[in-house]
């Protein structure tokens, strides 16, 4: 049954980009994010998108990031249509739509290439309180488990004559009750068991717990950061000084 949940979890990929410190990846992602946000010409957005795709190839994650872009293309189309409808010019509407795609893809760089483990370290480094980090960790950790629960519950209720695909909208919503109630009850029970297990392993015993791993910037990280910052500064400079035809 574990294939069911497979699509919802981070996948390890061996790539030089994945090996970078999560903070480096976060920086690159944020830079792209800022560049797309500030872009005022289609050509700029196009350059951002191309650079993101370049990084994606480097990170051997073109497929996943490409899928993210495709999935958000629908919403981009919607943005385009709405703008056009409200009298925003064709070119500007296109710009807004593309800008949205650029923002989505630049954030996805970070999330696609960063393991939940690294994400946790990054959150701690950013000074997020431990309880919140841990709540986040368990939430992500248990997504596949809860998905499996949901599938098993659906199987059980279908086996009691529940037709999930039949009926009108109201009926379909009502059909969700036999699925959602056990799912919620199970999750509550599960969180109780989690709390017991955490207590039993000394969670909260000291105010300042240590960690098996510590984030460390390698020389490579530092140079990548430097290059990306230079690139970022150059782009900003062009934004401010050079007038690009729209």
């Amino acid at each position: 049954m574990h294939w069911v949940a497979g699509g919802f979890v981070f996948r390890r990929v061996e790539s030089p980009f994945h090996k970078l410190d999560p903070r480096t990846k976060l920086l690159i992602s944020l830079e792209f994010f800022a560049i797309s946000l500030l872009a005022f010409a289609i050509i700029q957005v196009a350059i951002v998108l191309a650079s993101v795709l370049f990084v994606a190839v480097y990170a051997k994650s073109l497929k996943r990031i490409g899928r993210t872009i495709l999935m958000s293309a629908g919403f981009a189309g919607f943005i385009f249509a709405i703008n056009l409808l409200f009298g925003v010019g064709l070119v500007s509407s296109l710009l807004y739509a593309l800008r949205f795609l650029a923002i989505v893809s630049s954030t996805s760089i970070f999330f696609v290439t960063t393991s939940p483990d690294e994400l946790e370290h990054t959150m701690k480094w950013l000074g997020v309180p431990r309880d919140i980090v841990f709540a986040f960790v368990t939430a992500v950790r248990f997504i596949p488990v809860i998905m499996l629960d949901a599938f098993q519950i659906m199987d059980a209720q279908k086996s009691r004559g529940l037709e999930l695909e039949k009926g009108n909208f109201v009926k379909r919503i009502r059909n969700m009750v036999p699925i959602l109630v056990p799912l919620v009850v199970n999750s509550v029970v599960r969180s109780g068991e989690l709390a017991e297990a955490m207590e039993s392993r000394a969670y909260g015993a000291t105010p300042k717990p240590t960690s098996l791993y510590k984030l460390r910037l390698s020389r490579k990280d530092k140079s990548v950061m430097l290059v990306s910052l230079l690139f970022f500064a150059a782009v900003l400079y062009i934004y401010l000084r050079v007038k690009v035809p729209v």
Binding site: I153, D155, S159, R160, V177, P178, N186
Partner: peptide, 13 residues
Amino acid sequence: VGIAFQNPDHQLF
């Protein structure tokens, strides 16, 4: 064909 699954908590609602 009725199936009784292993975990009752996966169906009682």
